[in-house]
Amino acid sequence: MHRDRAIWASLAVLGLTFAAYMLRETGGNGWMPGCVFKKVTGFECPGCGMTRGTYALLHGRVGEAFGFNPVGMVLLPLAMIGLGIEVIGWVRGKPLPFRLNPGRWGATVIAVVMIAWWVGRNVV
């Protein structure tokens, strides 16, 4: 158990919770910078729509949330759980005996889906 790491992890959780609360109340308007990639290139990035999607999700509109960014809406919670397990191990100073690991093929599928999604949403 590392106290400094526990403090950092707690701050991150607090920050995320606060950001989620602010997003729920304001919709992100006026205080979130928005996607720079989209502003500069005009193309959407793989994460575009996540702010609107999370806003919809925080208001219980699941279908609408998936409409903004279906790939991100599936992968982000998975990644958060996977990362959470690693962070707990990091705070403990000793990795947990289990991990959320999609394996070599799962990881490849995720990479292919992410690139296809990125290209696809800009072409279609």
Binding site: K38, P46, L76, A79, L100, I110, W118
Partner: peptide
């Protein structure tokens, strides 16, 4: 493998470098 970190960076940071 930094897979979860990469996904979070791609989806939340809105940066194509994450891909």
């Amino acid at each position: 493998n930094y897979l979860w970190q990469s996904i979070v960076a791609t989806v939340l940071c809105c940066m194509p470098f994450g891909v």
